[in-house]
Design a protein around this nucleic acid. Sequence first.
RNA 1: GGGCUCAUGGUCUAGCUCGGUUAUGACAUUGCCUUUACACGGCAAAGUUCCAGGGUUCAAAUCCCUGUGAGCCCACCA
Length: 775
Amino acid sequence: MTEKLDNKSWNPELESKIMQKWDDDQLYSFIPKENNFVIDTPPPYPSGRPWHIGAAAHYAQIDMIARTARMSGENVYFPIGIDRNGLPVEIYTEKKHGIKIQDITRKEFLSLCSKSLDELEEEILHIMKILGISGDLVNHYRTDSEEYRTLTQSTFIELWNNGCIYLANRPNNYDCYTKTTISDAEITYTDIKTKLVYIKFNLIGSDNNTITISSTRPELLCACKIIIVHPDDKRYKKMIGKKVRTPIFNKTIEIRGHHSAKMEFGTGVVMVCSYGDQNDVLLFREMKLDEIIAIDLNGKMTDAAGKYSGLRVEIARSQIIEDLKNLECVEKIEKIRHNIPISERSKTPIEIIPMKEYYLKQQNEITKIKQLCSKIKFHPKMHKQMLMNWLNVISMDWPISRRRYYGTEIPIWYCKNCFEPQVPSPGKYYAPWKDKCPIPKCSKCKSTEFNGEEKILDTWMDSSISPLFITKFSTNEYFFKKTYPTSIRPQAKDIVRTWLYYTLLRCNQISEKVPWSNVWIMGHGLDNKGLKMSKSLKNAIDPLPIINKFGADAFRFWSASIVNHGYDFRCSIDKIESAKKFLSKLWNISRFVSNFPIVTCKKLNDTDKWILSEINQLIYNCKAGYKNYNFFIPSTKIREFTWNIFASHYIEMVKNRAYGNNVSIEEKNSAIYTLHKSLSSILLLLAPITPFITDYIWKKMYSENSIHTQNQIELGNYDDMTFLTCKIIEFNSSIWNAKKNNQIALNKQIEMAIPKELDIFKNDLLAMHSIKQKK
RNA sequence: GGGCUCAUGGUCUAGCUCGGUUAUGACAUUGCCUUUACACGGCAAAGUUCCAGGGUUCAAAUCCCUGUGAGCCCACCA
């Protein structure tokens, strides 16, 4: 059976042939049985080139989850999808073609986006393929397919009919660049330099007396309804209830007390406008003030801003500052650093603008979701806190509509006559912006004319039902019953508050079940200095040339062994190269072992018993890691053992016996048997991490069948001799040192005593070092 | 402001749950070596006293407290 291996090192070019064989044998096909292991694979978003090296490492590890489960005897379902809805590709397409969404027709824009996605998707699928991802790459799903969007819309319709989705006109986060409402989850913060302007307001009824407010948003003066001070602020207590006149706009407004005014900031006096920030929203609601809409959907001032109407926000700001200065209303201007909310996608400041949007109820679900979390096992545990933090701060329902094009359409038409919403039946894909309303007559007034809804759904409305889509919810009842809830949700840690949370929310709303029993969260890939990779910093590393150069197995081994599971990791080419060196070491060990035939053995030599007990301990350690889908533990333990114990000490010790120099046939066979037993164990343990090299060697030496059809090796029944390992290492080192110090060549004889505790290994040690035993 | 995580030789990292041998390994450095698997190799050397301070203890990198620094998440920010 054993076939000799050629070459002096592992050749990554073999990987493509090995992969071809896997494909031909359909090694990873799936038909539901009883012991299904379903992976809710994250569908990557193709948002630009190159694909992130950290993402490639992420998917390599997700594949290790699949292979670990397979080797545990599970029937693994490992679907692959591509997330194609939403803003990022629109922004990418606008930049790529130098256009804005408004410049061309909706149809043309959709087609350009689709083309961009196809190109970007191809690169991702190619990298997944060469990485040896054992998922269903051929039948990959797309979240913008008719099938997927049908499911998204069907769930929308169901929730609308249940009253879980409703329409409301509320102040919302608005991204003026992409011209759409966004949710709190899509907001991030940034520090900017800005001006804090101290503006004097005249107090009414007391001549020449003024009160000075401080504001970073003076352009919102036209929308100022009240000013507030802290009720305990001694400076202003007396003024509560009095009225002031706004400069320029000459409106009379009241001073009120409110605890949200901070005495120590600025002057301690705040003008409350619709809407400068979330606190303004709260105050308008609390004090039942009528809002004045000062900013329009293009990010320009409205007619309410009088002479500033039509100006962009920043220009209006600097003009009004000049005007206020000229009116001598400005007491001073302070330059401050200020943390402002920006859109995660466009990186531009958000405005708060009241708009009619669709909302999905979530506030009433939080308690239930917290309870559900206790049923989920988190890997690693510490990242559960990120989800809990988010659950504790959700303060409003989820606005799910977007004023963009590339997404799943909201399946609603409105009656032209009475404006009654018309919701079609679920199970079909609808595009109301271009399709005729499938309902012939208005349900209320029997009119026959309709307007289609033009808005689309937030991307997370699609991706949050991935566990339902992959298990064929509502299209294949048998399949769904067998596969849902799924086994594991692997994902990156930066989308806990979006993908993880929204999936829990949505799947529970629809299926009343937790969608998975395990959540597996990986850290970020950083550059070699520990900084986040970004296109602007130009520190992004393209994974493709690295994989091509060192091979997928080297890349995968690096990914598994670079950092413990859950922590951020640095990407450095040196470390990937050193992973490749380990594979060459493994290759050469195999090459040595492949010199010997497969034999049986009746009685084991003590040296062989010792290494088998070491192997047993290795199996034990690896199992502990694999059990939690932690690949850092097995990869580092295997490397450590294979290189520093098995190769350096054991192989050297048994070489003489394996070659059969002056030993009995039993002793020779014991060595050869153990060499094969050890190597095959190492290959099996390593198979989920480095599937190519292990399969190649396995097939050359041990079986016609792929190593990926084998079950993982179980613990053997050996006496523990691992306490001798450090003694052996110590002794071998002492000989090497002695020869070195006495300038004796390694293959020359030396006189030395064998320590008592190593007496059982005496013959092997004597032969290994050419020792002439001292009496 | 709240939470999470981290701080170990030049760099990265193991150990810390359950305190006890000369603190693990890798990368880098230096020297020697082509010995029937491997120079993508072997052997060896040098290098840390475990962020700081205090405490518990016969004994602390490991437990407790305080502080400092870093990263991340969340909130606030006129």
